[in-house]
Simulated scan of single mutants.
Amino acid sequence: MSAPLLPIINHLIQQNPEQQRALAKFAGKTVQINAAGLRLQGRIGAQGFLETANTAPDTALTFHNSAVQKILQGHKPGVGDIAVEGDLMLGMAVLTAFGGLRYDAGNDLARLFGSNAAENIGERAAAIGHTIKQIGRSIAEQIGEFAREPESPVVDQATLLEWLDEVDKLRDDVARLNARLDRLEKDIWL
């Protein structure tokens, strides 16, 4: 599974020269990263990029499911969320370097579309992201306020299913009424 992921990781390393230099100090060492069922293994090259390697890793970093969940939620994993095996110093250095990798979408957009278009796309994407966050916060606040109101009904699943069933019946009744009105209108004009 390592080979398909190496170009992606190396692209990230290329976008982060400081982390690339930090990794280059460990040229010749082999690392393995295990996360969410994926295994990435590579030898650190002289330039700090990962190369294909089939030898036993000098260090292995295992991100437990709790670490993956925290990362996806935008939080930092804790000490118990990551296991380091083998060369502890190498593992900690690689963990720090990989933790410092940041993706710069603007850089890739500029390469593909030119800097002016990339800036425009980036601004629009940021505006859309900001709007989506505001909508999400607004909905969360409204739900929170509704739940705090003393008269707000908290219903069980059976009551909710009954209510949804009534809504379906009302929708069917409205559809039948519209069909009758359409027939009546046609009869009047004939």
Rank of each mutant, 00 (worst) to 15 (best):
K133Y: 03
E123F: 14
Q157F: 10
R102M: 11
A110Y: 07
T159Y: 06
V167D: 08
F98M: 10
Q134C: 08
S115I: 09
A140R: 10
T159F: 05
A83P: 03
N116E: 14
I121Q: 04
E162H: 09
K169M: 11
A125D: 09
A147N: 10
P150K: 03
G114L: 08
A93G: 07
S138H: 09
Q134H: 05
Y103N: 15
G129T: 03
R111S: 07
V155P: 03
E85N: 12
S152D: 01
V84A: 11
L95I: 00
N107M: 10
T159M: 11
L112G: 01
D104H: 14
A125N: 06
I82E: 02
L109F: 13
G136H: 04
L90G: 03
L88W: 06
P153K: 14
F113A: 11
R148E: 08
K133W: 03
L164N: 10
G122W: 05
R102P: 00
A147T: 04
F113G: 04
G91K: 03
M89C: 04
T159N: 04
A127C: 00
G136L: 12
R111P: 01
N107T: 15
Y103V: 02
N107Y: 14
I132L: 14
L160E: 10
T159K: 10
L101D: 00
A117R: 11
L101Y: 06
A125H: 10
A127W: 05
R137N: 15
L88A: 14
V154Y: 00
T96E: 10
Q142D: 09
L161G: 07
L90S: 05
N116Q: 14
I121A: 09
A127R: 11
F98C: 08
A126P: 00
I139P: 05
Y103F: 14
L161D: 15
D81Q: 03
A83S: 15
V155A: 14
I128A: 12
A127Y: 04
T96Q: 13
F146L: 07
A93I: 00
S115A: 14
G144C: 04
G129D: 11
D104W: 03
L90A: 07
E145C: 08
V94E: 02
R148L: 02
